[in-house]
């Protein structure tokens, strides 16, 4: 198992004892959130997205695909002991900086040198180089998004009311299957219209190409055991078809 895929259900973590309502724990976190979102807005994969973005007219040197999957793969691939050492946006900062180094946009040395500079002079300004056309694309992306909905696929394998079991695929770099649901029995409560394409193939995990997505309900007692679960509790998850198999296959 990969621990990050199994967060749901971990015990002995202590109380969610302080209700921290702030979005950003430090001012610098806003900047890495912003950088990530701009990268999503100028990602080359958007030329195939549902909204027709005029990507070829956006002046940028960014020539890669960057989606939620990129960020998630980074976090899910961290050594678990490392994963828990870092706060949410610290992980983003590590993953995104490493991406730009790995893809040759910046060198580790220039990043280290400039980091030292800003450490010594925290108020020294950023370069002044606005890019109005990119800014427009960022605003367009935020207003129109990047749905995975594609043409309706043909055969729907399951119907509302069907009993299904969750598969137990090989642990891969990335998944959209919450670990605590593996091998559990559930009931289809909704078949979402159309078919969806996830940002990337997850290989042996099973996401690849167009798939139907289902809302599936699970009794808490079926997941955690009748003696170990709270009463009268149902968990719903949205699951890609690859993660489901019919009850009679068990």
């Amino acid at each position: 198992m990969r621990l990050q895929h199994y967060l749901g259900g971990l015990e002995n973590l202590g109380p969610v004892n302080f209700f921290e309502k702030k979005v950003f724990m430090a001012e610098w976190e806003k900047r890495i959130f912003g950088i990530h979102t701009v990268m999503m807005a100028e990602s080359v994969h958007l030329d195939k997205s549902l909204p027709k973005y005029p990507l070829s007219e956006v002046p940028t040197t960014f020539k890669d695909t960057w989606t939620w999957a990129s960020l998630r793969i980074g976090a899910e691939n961290m050594q678990p002991f490392e994963y828990f050492k870092y706060r949410y946006y610290e992980k983003w900062l590590m993953g995104i900086s490493q991406f730009f180094i790995d893809r040759g946009y910046v060198t580790a040395k220039e990043l280290a040198t400039l980091t030292e500079h800003y450490r010594a002079h925290p108020d020294s300004p950023l370069p002044e180089q606005p890019n109005p056309a990119l800014k427009e694309q960022v605003v367009r992306y935020l207003h129109h998004g990047d749905s995975g909905l594609r043409a309706p696929a043909d055969l729907v394998r399951f119907a509302v009311g069907d009993t299904v079991y969750v598969t137990d695929p090989e642990a891969a770099d990335h998944t959209r299957l919450p670990g605590f649901l593996r091998n559990k029995k559930g009931t289809v409560t909704e078949v979402y219209p159309g078919a969806f394409e996830y940002f990337v193939s997850t290989g042996p995990d099973g996401l690849d190409g167009l798939q139907h997505v289902y809302c599936v309900s699970f009794l808490a007692s079926d997941i955690w055991g009748p003696d170990k679960s709270e009463p009268n509790t149902v968990i719903y998850a949205d699951l890609f078809e690859a993660y489901l198999k019919p009850a009679h296959s068990m």
Partner: peptide
């Protein structure tokens, strides 16, 4: 340390044309 690193990253990406100096602010 994180604040300096993210500022350095943003500065480099602006210089290299990946971001404009107004891009992150547009998101926020």
């Amino acid at each position: 340390a994180s604040a300096a690193k993210v500022r350095a990253l943003e500065a480099l990406l602006i210089k290299k044309g990946v971001l404009g100096s107004d891009s992150v602010d547009a998101v926020l």
